[in-house]
Design a protein around this nucleic acid. Structure first.
Length: 568
RNA sequence: CGGGGUGUGGCGCAGUCUGGCUAGCGUGCUACCUUGGGGUGGUAGAGGUCGCAGGUUCAAGUCCUGUCACUCCGACCA
């Protein structure tokens, strides 16, 4: 395509609210345009990249035997009522009524729709397994959209669903999708990591996330420095902690006056005891369906930190929020001196696994200015769950390596769903024995539009975008230095025609602009390879420039076509 | 939802505190000239209901009330 005919509104200045490189460069280079909170227009360049990413995903999925479908974006609320998510999904689900006053929602994900499709059309085990997907606009009315394409309200997502006759077959589908996703992200040129994940609201038994490693990522992931273990912090495990700290010598169990000592640090200093032997008690307010809530306590070693997602799962709550001081007092709890000892009647407390069989502990006495020394959990019946946030330096649960934290952008998430949706929606098939059984499902997502942002987060410099080969809007960018020089213009046109005839996607900058101006735009737009036709043409030479690293090389003009083809 | 901020030509901003005449600046845009390997220089132009509604005043971008939108931090979130 010719630059003069394309809508590529590049700008020198970034939008004032943009923070991330991907947001800044995609806007400045004319890929996207913000049109409202979390809403973006894709301009010609952006649309080309989006199509490329989509194409890579489609090719690999089709190769894996998945079938593409396209379900309605506007979906009847009745399906959502059937699955129970019409109420549960909350305000993220955009609801509205049609002229007949019927309820509808804009699809934020399509489990209900897909299950409905399959239960109406698939009746026999002979038709299984089947894997259906679509690449389609989704709408989630996010509380706080931000970071450009990273967290929009309207976005493009690939969502796939597998239906199998057995748990075992479903796991096969799941593994196949893991491999397929890996190929997709590899082809796109991304540095990513597959990590174990919390299943969140979607539910199911096992899930893995595909994380693009980038400092600007919103998720914290834990990875091992010597094996390939990786997990979202929400689900990360660690090797059993063995402390070298000396166990305090405690001969009796009793209350101890600890005036004004409210924090773990202060307590540790007060008793000269390692935090490992202190009990940290965290109170949270757990929210449940239909507005119900209660105060719950989580106990862990003073040396550990509470991971909220794990805590939330441990008590089966929808979410956890901070409990106010008044709420604690009304429950008979004493902020600053809470502990598992002498709890008020009816309190809910969950212990971290790390405290199992713990002894010689010091905890709050639930009395102002008092702690309890000699707390002992040996032989005590209690609820134990993994509650800790893995910290950098902890041991890997798989090998002898050390864990460290890094940031990642979630671009894919695969779930083993089981019968979580098929059972309540009565999506069943007949097995070999003529028995009715619910489908065993898996669900798989890729954030297609988010991938554009992820690619740039990982591939940019201080001048602009650096697209990977598979994602770039064009393969080659021809820069005619001075369009008014007839021989330069002609050489550019000829190269443009020749490359196009060989099927290469080419952008020809035929604008009447100065050289520097055009180079800046090339750097901003970020096509991987440029050919500069300029002053050395009189000596029969042109220049080839790689966007990554901006390496320049002089080439004989006669050889340029071959050289370009060689580098694609 | 809690706490801040901002709405003024396409974009980025000043002006508002302390009301006053044709609302400025940079950039972009149009035309012509100039320049031609790193966002040339110049001349002349086009382009604004100052977010919206109401109020105070002789007079409102500026003061008051309400409202909407956007945005940042937090909480939340395949």
């Amino acid at each position: 395509m010719r630059f003069t005919q394309l809508l590529i509104p590049t700008t020198k200045e970034a939008p004032s609210d943009a923070v991330l490189p991907s947001h800044i460069y995609l806007t400045r280079a004319g890929y996207i345009q913000s049109i409202g909170s979390g809403l973006y227009n894709f301009l010609p360049l952006g649309k080309r990249v989006l199509d490329n990413v989509r194409q890579v995903a489609k090719e690999e999925l089709d190769k894996a035997g998945c079938q593409e479908v396209d379900l309605a974006f506007v979906t009847p609320a009745s399906l959502w009522e059937e699955s129970g998510r019409f109420e549960k999904y909350g305000k993220e689900l955009l609801r509205f009524k049609d002229r007949k006053n019927n309820d509808f929602v804009l699809g934020p994900t399509h489990e209900e729709m897909m299950v409905n499709l399959v239960r109406q059309t698939v009746k026999s085990y002979k038709q299984l397994p089947i894997n259906l997907y679509q690449i389609k606009t989704k709408f989630r009315d996010e509380i706080r959209p931000r970071f450009g394409l990273m967290r929009g309200r309207e976005f493009l997502m690939k969502d796939g669903y597998s239906f199998a006759a057995s748990e075992e077959d479903m796991k096969g589908d799941f593994d196949l999708m893991e491999q397929t996703y890996s190929r997709i992200f590899e082809r796109l040129g991304l540095d990513y990591r597959i990590v174990e994940a919390d299943s969140g609201a979607i539910g199911g038994s096992g899930s893995k996330e595909f994380m693009v490693i980038a400092d600007s990522g919103e998720d914290t992931i834990v990875i091992c420095d010597s094996c390939d273990y990786g997990a979202n912090i929400e689900a990360a495990q660690r090797a059993v902690v063995c402390t070298e700290a000396e166990e305090p010598e405690i001969s009796m169990s009793s209350k101890f006056k600890t005036e004004g000592v409210k924090t773990i640090e202060a307590l540790s200093a007060f008793f000269h005891v390692d935090p490992y032997y202190l009990v940290k008690t965290v109170a949270m307010k757990a929210l449940y369906d239909e507005g119900e809530s209660k105060i719950v306590l989580f106990a862990l070693r003073g040396s550990d930190k509470l991971e909220e997602t794990k805590a939330c799962n441990a008590v089966g709550a929808n979410e956890l929020t901070e409990a106010s001081e008044e709420e604690l007092l009304s429950e008979g709890l004493v902020p600053g001196f809470m502990g598992p000892h002498a709890l008020p009647e009816g309190s809910t407390i969950v212990y971290d696994e790390g405290l199992r069989e713990g002894k010689s502990l010091i905890c709050g006495a639930n009395e102002t200015d008092y702690h309890f020394v000699g707390f002992d959990l040996r032989g005590v019946e209690a609820a134990y769950h993994d509650l800790v946030a893995v910290q950098a330096g902890d041991g890997c649960p798989r090998c002898s390596g050390k864990l460290k934290h890094t940031k990642g952008i979630e671009v894919g998430h695969i779930f083993q769903l089981g019968t979580q949706y098929s059972a309540p929606l009565h999506a069943e098939f007949l097995d070999e024995n003529g028995k009715s059984k619910p489908f065993v499902m898996g669900t798989y997502g890729i954030g297609i539009s988010r991938l554009l942002a992820a690619i740039i987060e990982q591939h940019h410099d201080d001048k602009g975008c650096i697209w990977t080969k598979a994602s770039a809007p064009f393969a080659v960018h021809i820069i005619v230095s001075n369009i008014k020089k007839e021989e330069e213009r002609e050489a550019g046109e000829k190269l443009y025609e020749t490359l196009q005839s060989k099927g290469v996607q080419v952008l020809l900058d035929d604008r009447k602009e100065r050289f520097g101006f055009k180079m800046k735009d090339f750097e901003l737009i970020g096509i991987p390879l440029a050919v500069v036709i300029g002053r050395n043409l009189t000596e029969g030479k042109v220049e080839i420039v790689t966007r990554d690293g901006l390496v320049k090389e002089e080439i004989e003009a006669a050889e340029i076509v071959n050289e370009v083809l060689r580098r694609l």
